[in-house]
């Protein structure tokens, strides 16, 4: 563990990413302390520029505090990112494990299915799913999970393919362990590191996807989100630039932080690869 931390720390960008991420999580956790009351409530006059009348980041067309919206939106963004990633991991790991461990016809079928999902324009599909199942937080998470599992399935399949013929797996088979037990207790723990690296990148892209959906008006109508804030600032951008600039910066910083952490995790979990990369860079 200390080894892991030492290698992670060596990547300076990853440390910066971790600090930003911690800040975002803190803002989300303390949103109701920092900005009590609903972010939908009017706080001051409309279109107050940033820094005036106690509005740190200005107010929107209905006099709502933009900073409060961003803080409360952080909760939704992080939550959607995390939950939809867990759901996508569940689909991807199950399918990838089946394909990689069983091989043969099952492998073929799963890979065709995966290819299909990788071919279709995923964002258009996500829009269609949310629109048809009416925009709620549940349908947004569902749509994001449905379009983001294919890379997981591919990675897990490749890991399982190479692990299933190893001696420790054969030993477990000889011992008469059930297939499910072998997959869950013997193979999966050894395939974890690429899954961990991938999942931090998936949270990042899930946050981007969620913001794009709510920008188009497909967010849960009862929840304040970053994408919604930018969407509502779009038509008045000539009048109030701050309404679209700051929520966008929040998305950018969060996604950047997650990407940097992902690179750090990759360095820490695959020391050999990191050294190679370090040598080349």
């Amino acid at each position: 563990m200390s080894d892991f931390w030492r290698r992670f720390r060596r990547n300076r960008g990853a440390v910066v990413g971790l600090v930003i991420l911690a800040l975002v999580i803190a803002v989300a956790a303390f949103a109701s302390v920092l900005f009590p009351g609903s972010p939908w409530d009017m706080a001051t006059a409309p279109f107050v520029p940033p820094g005036e009348e106690g509005m740190l980041l200005g107010s929107d067309s209905l006099g709502r505090d933009v900073a409060a919206g961003i803080a409360h939106g952080a909760r939704i963004s992080l939550m959607v990112g995390a939950v939809s990633t867990v759901a996508a991991l569940f689909i991807g790991v199950s399918l990838g494990a089946v394909a990689g461990y069983l091989g043969g016809v099952a492998d073929d079928a799963v890979m065709r299915f995966t290819e299909f999902f990788q071919t279709i324009p995923s964002f258009v599909f996500a829009i269609l799913l949310v629109a048809i199942f009416t925009p709620t937080i549940g349908s947004v998470v569902f749509a994001i999970a449905v379009v983001s599992w294919p890379p997981v399935a591919r990675v897990v399949r490749a890991e399982f393919l190479s692990l299933r013929s190893r001696e420790f797996v054969q030993a477990a088979e000889v011992l008469g362990k059930s297939r499910i037990a072998i997959v869950v207790t013997d193979i999966l723990p050894n395939a974890l590191s690429p899954i961990v690296v991938l999942s931090s990148l998936m949270v990042a892209s899930a946050i981007l996807l969620e913001s794009a959906l709510s920008f188009l008006g497909l967010g849960d109508p009862n929840l304040m989100t970053w994408g919604f804030l930018i969407g509502s600032g779009r038509s008045v951008i000539r009048l109030a630039w701050w309404m679209s600039v700051f929520p966008g910066l929040a998305i950018f910083l969060t996604v950047l932080a997650l990407n940097l952490v992902g690179e750090g995790l990759s360095d820490a979990l695959n020391p050999r690869l990191a050294r190679q990369r370090g040598g080349a860079a």
Partner: peptide
């Protein structure tokens, strides 16, 4: 590369509008 990888597409568009048009 990292920056544009982490920026929402629609927001880049809005910022370009803000800068070059407004």
């Amino acid at each position: 590369a990292l920056t544009f990888y982490a920026t929402p597409l629609f927001w880049v568009g809005l910022m370009l509008v803000l800068f070059f048009s407004v």
